[in-house]
């Protein structure tokens, strides 16, 4: 198969795309700014492009999932995001869905591999 025609990168990207929101929410029980959140996710093996993550934080804030504030400390002013009360509840529900989906997918993939 010619590398350019390999559908794997595109399909893997779609697979990961569905998990980005949950991944971001998982790290926001404590306040993070965009860059620190990206680093925290990357350190755990979840690389998310800057151009995807930063606007996503704004959109989640607009939906009431996150709250944010500007903070100044030793460094430059940074906008810190954290889960809102609604966001915490949403995160719990999404986590449960993720675990249920994971169990189903594990069974399906194991079933597929066994054939």
């Amino acid at each position: 198969m010619v590398e350019a025609d390999d559908p794997f990168p595109k399909l893997e990207l779609e697979l990961r795309r569905g998990a980005i929101v949950l991944a971001a929410l998982s790290q926001l029980s404590s306040a993070q700014y965009g860059y620190s959140l990206r680093q925290a996710l990357a350190a755990r093996g979840m690389e998310i492009e800057e151009g995807t993550l930063y606007p996503l934080l704004r959109r989640l804030e607009a939906q009431g999932v996150l709250v944010s504030e500007w903070r100044t400390g030793d460094g430059p002013p940074r906008r810190y995001y954290t889960l809102s009360e609604d966001g915490r509840q949403l995160y719990t529900r999404l986590s449960q869905s993720w675990h249920a989906l994971g169990a189903v997918m594990d069974a399906l993939v194991a079933d597929g591999a066994g054939r």
Binding site: Y33, G34, Y35, E50, Y54, P76, P77, R78, R79
Partner: peptide, 10 residues
């Protein structure tokens, strides 16, 4: 302001 700070830090 946020984008500028993030890009500078990146």
């Amino acid at each position: 302001a946020e984008l500028s700070a993030l890009l500078t830090e990146e």
